[in-house]
Simulated assay, not measured.
Amino acid sequence: MSRIKQVFEKKQQRVLNVYCTAGFPELNSTVEVMESLQENGADLIELGMPYSDPLADGPVIQASSSVALANGMTIAVLFEQLKAMRPRIKVPVILMGYMNPVLQYGFERFCSDAAAVGVDGLILPDLPEYEFEMEYGPIIRKYGLDFIFLVTPETSTDRVRKLDQLSAGFLYAVSSSSTTGTDKQMEDVSQYLNRLKAMQLSNPILVGFGIKDKASFDAACAHANGAIIGSAFIKALEGGGATRDKVKTFLNQVLS
């Protein structure tokens, strides 16, 4: 059983996945941020690989990616930083990014290196279902990595079931067809989340996009197994002050 699945076996509800951008706010702050997230209650860590042309990222995460790239973050640098991650980081770590830089790095080399440093899963929003089935899925599974697909309120029932079948770890339920950081009222998406819940899917469901504080986290958890916080956390890391203090303050507010 993968580390991600173990999280949901142990804690079936109120699972918190926090997104952070590798190399932000400083090039070498990646593991410090991850350790702080673990210490203060994050169940999963979604580590964003900065890319100059992201498709699903809102302005806050785009800006953090620009800073990280300017800091010198690359996939190679990230894997070097993560070499010492285990056993310091006990929680599952998921790499989130886009296909272009991964293909430039070499897809099988990427999966091999990710597994070697202890990464548990991948989120690649622009990897199409067909290409996953025909080419990339077998490579991902070869290295024991979970792969998480995204669904939206517009995803048909048949497609949701198909993506659930192909996913491992959990299913990422995007709260709306927009970019990250959108101010979305959870009441507006409760019908969509209840539809997913009623389908009795194989994978647990985490809600992302627009989760920013205790109220939105609680609302998401009422309809799913947990939620993903990204843009609001990146905002919390901006500005002065000690990184560990900023992480602790933010997560205390969400989980209190």
Rank of each mutant, 00 (worst) to 15 (best):
L150H: 03
Y136K: 15
L201S: 08
P50K: 02
K248R: 15
L163M: 09
V93T: 07
A56G: 14
N100L: 01
P204D: 05
N28T: 15
Q185N: 13
T155N: 10
R159Y: 13
Q185V: 11
T74K: 02
E26S: 08
P25A: 06
A227M: 07
T157Q: 10
P87S: 02
L16Y: 06
M99E: 07
G241Y: 03
P87A: 02
V77K: 06
D183H: 06
D53E: 14
Q104H: 10
A215L: 04
V60C: 04
L55F: 09
L44G: 05
T157H: 03
M96C: 04
E80D: 11
V60P: 02
F107L: 04
A236Q: 07
F250L: 05
S66E: 14
F217N: 00
D126Q: 07
A114W: 05
E131H: 13
M134E: 15
E135K: 06
E108I: 09
L251W: 02
A236T: 13
N194V: 11
D164R: 02
R195S: 15
Q6T: 12
A232L: 00
K142P: 12
F79P: 06
G210I: 07
Y136N: 15
L103Y: 13
A22L: 12
A220D: 00
D158N: 11
A22M: 12
I234M: 05
L124M: 09
I75H: 08
I139E: 03
S177G: 09
F8V: 04
A224T: 07
K212H: 07
S175E: 10
G240V: 10
D158V: 08
R195V: 14
V102Y: 00
E133L: 10
F209K: 04
R159L: 13
V77P: 03
L82R: 01
A114F: 05
G58W: 03
V15R: 00
Y130Q: 14
V7A: 06
T21D: 08
A232P: 02
P204K: 01
S112I: 02
C20N: 12
G230F: 06
Y136W: 13
V91I: 14
A63Q: 12
I228A: 00
V18S: 01
F170N: 07
S176A: 14
I228Q: 00
S190M: 13
A116T: 05
A70F: 07
D57M: 01
F209Q: 04
L47M: 09
A227S: 11
A220H: 00
L44V: 15
V117N: 03
Y130S: 10
N203G: 13
L166F: 09
S112V: 04
S231Q: 06
L163Q: 09
T249V: 11
L255T: 01
F107C: 06
